[in-house]
């Protein structure tokens, strides 16, 4: 029974081309270790160095967004802050993808949506120019530098990023962002 139950779970992960999947509380150390595994895996598979660097870069920005902006975040000294979320890296039709998901406050959705819509509508040159402007600006209110992280993800992706929100209860919304490399 037990093996059968989890075989289905294991199988579903495999069938979706997932090479790394984490769901639960993420800390900086968890992110670092997952990144180490991801890099080792790409090295073993002899992934093109340029692609491997872009996958890693998007993975880090995505994971740090979960850590910084998950609405389900526990910061209780002396333990390091823990942020609930989901990090998935996989391969679909020969292309790597990185998906992250975490809860955000419903009232923050329009701002995030607006920011992503703006980036999604930019071409490579516009993204580059926008990135440079943001690098020089003091951080936006409530931001820990994450707006630059989103630009980085959109710039490094090889196709337009996909994103979506799903309301969870009255105050929260589940935010998902998928980037192909």
């Amino acid at each position: 029974m037990l093996a059968q139950q989890y075989t289905a779970f294991h199988q579903a992960i495999r069938e979706n081309g997932i090479i790394l999947s984490f769901s639960g509380f993420v800390s900086e150390k968890v992110m670092f270790s997952l990144g180490e595994v991801l890099r080792a895996r790409m090295q073993q598979e002899e992934t093109d160095t340029g692609i491997a660097k872009r996958v890693f870069s998007i993975f880090v920005e995505q994971a740090q967004n979960v850590i910084r902006y998950s609405a389900n975040r526990i910061a209780k000294e002396p333990t390091p802050p823990l942020s609930a979320g989901m990090i998935i890296v996989g391969i679909e039709e020969g292309r790597f993808f990185v998906v992250c998901g975490n809860e955000v406050l419903r009232r923050d959705v329009p701002v995030l949506q607006g920011r992503l819509d703006l980036l999604a509508g930019m071409n490579a040159e516009e993204l580059k120019a926008h990135y440079r402007v943001k690098l020089k600006e003091p951080p936006e209110e409530g931001s820990l530098g994450g707006s630059i992280g989103l630009i980085e993800i959109v710039r490094r992706a090889s196709a337009p990023v996909e994103f979506d929100f799903q309301d969870v209860g009255a105050d929260l919304s589940f935010f998902c962002l998928k980037a192909y490399i």
Partner: peptide, 16 residues
């Protein structure tokens, strides 16, 4: 050999 976006911002501050 690699820097994340937070470090890019820090580099820009040093460069300025």
């Amino acid at each position: 050999s690699y820097f994340n976006s937070s470090s890019a911002k820090a580099l820009m501050n040093l460069f300025m």
